[in-house]
Design a protein around this nucleic acid. Structure first.
Lengths: 208, 208
DNA sequence: TGTACATCAGTGAACGCGCGTTCACTGATGTAC
DNA sequence: TGTACATCAGTGAACGCGCGTTCACTGATGTAC
């Protein structure tokens, strides 16, 4: 399969990197867009799997460490595969509309962080005074979908989780795309700080 | 000048949108990359100016409202000019290296938020116990550059500001690029929430 | 006021290139008897 | 064990297209006398 090491988004370039003539790819993908879709799905599954492995290496009893592990894995993957990262988290490819079934693999990474948060809230004895806040958040999120993915998590925490997700990817993009040039010197430490702030926002308050 | 309404990043497409033949552009730009640079600088100045106007419409005595105004202006600009937004905040154009002098216009938008934060801290009587925390943050940021841009602001707040900057752009990108499809329903209210969290993180604690 | 000439914005044809896609093909591998 | 044929992965030439770039050109506008 045309999985590993495909960087450019041109069919001919992909073929070139595979050491194969361009028309050979038509045996596997009827069209360029299908190739693109395959690459995107592949990339999503790749980050997703990385994050999952990292998370599973830390016991659920330490949600903050888990959160850090997963986030770092995502960043590491991004830096190792900048092209696939740009493919899925950069600007959409002009003229290409991702088919419906890419949504599931796309959600996989986010779900890793979501699960860590959900598990942590389930374990915590933090009182969830959901009802009175639900009204303030009513209609902001796609509650039905999120019920399946982050069950039992307060609506406000779900919102913060979505925010934090954009924050983490935003930081990685800024680092990779050069927007932090001139302001951040040590990206490793900066990222740790960012993730720690994120964790504080979305994890239940520590029980001392 | 080739300013308004240029969406695609191909020289011929820009020419087409200007109702002009492609070779005509060579009177103004020696090369495609120079055109691109001009478009990028233009886009940066455009968002920057929008944010500045919005910020100046709110008195400095209300930093949180100012912050919201500026952030909303950025989002509004992004939604009105999705192509220029993608050009500057999406994946970098392959094979194109932005020249040094694009950094200044690029900083302009960020500087609007930075100024709001800086002004707020200057006005606030919040104790800045900078020295003891400076050690923890030492070497993380490009302190020399940030001294010029956010003078007198604690190093930790500067770090949070940079994080929050990526968070805001991250959220806008997620909205525009479709990554929030299926999780966020009301983007306006979601964005307000995000910006409010951001403001809370970077503005000095309210004096009651 | 009128002619002569320079300036300058834009035209249009042409170039070589990489792209996505097609199509007839080659040659190795697997199966049938 | 050996021949005959089907399957299948990949080749290579060709297509039409949009791209960035060049070059000689046209025709309107501005300046000089």
């Amino acid at each position: 399969m045309a999985a590993k090491g495909a960087s450019g988004l041109s069919l001919r370039e992909v073929a070139r990197e595979m050491g194969v003539v361009s028309s050979a790819l038509y045996r596997y993908f009827p069209t360029r867009d299908d190739l693109l879709t395959a690459l995107i799905v592949d990339a999503y599954n790749d980050v997703g799997a990385s994050a999952e492995r990292a998370a599973h290496r830390v016991p659920p009893s330490e949600p903050r460490r888990r959160f850090h592990a997963a986030a770092s894995a995502i960043r590491k993957w991004a830096k190792t595969n900048p092209n696939e990262y740009a493919l899925v988290y950069g600007s959409p490819v002009p003229g290409y509309e991702a088919p419906q079934f890419t949504i599931e693999p796309a959600a996989r990474v986010a779900l890793v962080l979501g699960s860590i948060i959900t598990d942590a809230w389930r374990e915590s004895r933090a009182e969830v005074s959901e009802e009175n806040e639900a009204s303030a958040m009513k209609g902001v999120l796609e509650t039905r979908n999120l019920d399946a993915v982050m069950p039992g998590v307060p609506e406000s925490v779900r919102a913060l989780s979505l925010m934090v997700w954009a924050q983490i990817i935003g930081c990685i993009s800024f680092e990779l795309f050069g927007h932090y040039k001139g302001s951040v010197r040590n990206f490793n430490r900066f990222f740790v700080m960012v993730v720690d702030e994120a964790a504080t926002l979305v994890l239940p308050p520590e029980r001392v």
